[in-house]
Amino acid sequence: MFDYTFQWRQAIRALPQMLDGALVTMQIAVLSMAIGVTIAVFLAVARNSSSRWLRAPATAWVEVARNTPALFQIYMAHFGLGSFGIYLSPYIALLAGIAFNNAGYLCETFRGALRAIPATQIRAGRSLGMGPAKAFRLIVMPQMFRISFLPTMNQAVWAILMTSLGVTVGMNSDLTGVTQDLNARTFRTFEFFAMAAVIYYLIAKAVMLGARLIAWRMFRY
Results as ranks from 00 to 15, higher is better:
4 Y>T: 06
4 Y>H: 14
5 T>C: 08
6 F>Y: 14
9 R>C: 15
14 A>N: 04
14 A>P: 03
16 P>I: 10
18 M>F: 04
18 M>E: 00
22 A>L: 01
26 M>W: 01
34 A>D: 15
34 A>L: 11
37 V>F: 04
37 V>R: 00
55 R>D: 11
58 A>N: 01
58 A>P: 02
59 T>L: 08
60 A>K: 13
64 V>F: 06
64 V>K: 02
64 V>T: 06
66 R>H: 08
72 F>Q: 12
73 Q>I: 08
78 H>N: 13
80 G>C: 05
81 L>N: 05
83 S>W: 12
93 A>L: 05
94 L>Q: 06
99 A>C: 13
100 F>A: 04
102 N>M: 11
105 Y>C: 01
107 C>A: 10
110 F>L: 01
111 R>T: 03
112 G>C: 02
120 T>E: 09
122 I>W: 03
123 R>V: 11
123 R>N: 15
124 A>C: 13
129 G>F: 08
133 A>S: 09
136 F>Q: 07
138 L>P: 08
141 M>P: 10
147 I>Y: 08
149 F>H: 05
149 F>C: 04
155 Q>T: 11
156 A>V: 12
159 A>L: 02
161 L>C: 11
162 M>S: 09
167 V>Q: 02
172 N>D: 13
172 N>R: 10
174 D>Y: 04
179 T>L: 05
180 Q>T: 11
188 R>V: 03
191 E>N: 06
191 E>G: 05
193 F>V: 04
195 M>I: 02
196 A>M: 00
197 A>W: 05
199 I>M: 01
200 Y>P: 00
200 Y>G: 00
205 K>A: 10
205 K>G: 10
206 A>D: 02
207 V>A: 02
209 L>R: 13
210 G>D: 09
212 R>S: 13
217 R>F: 15
220 R>G: 12
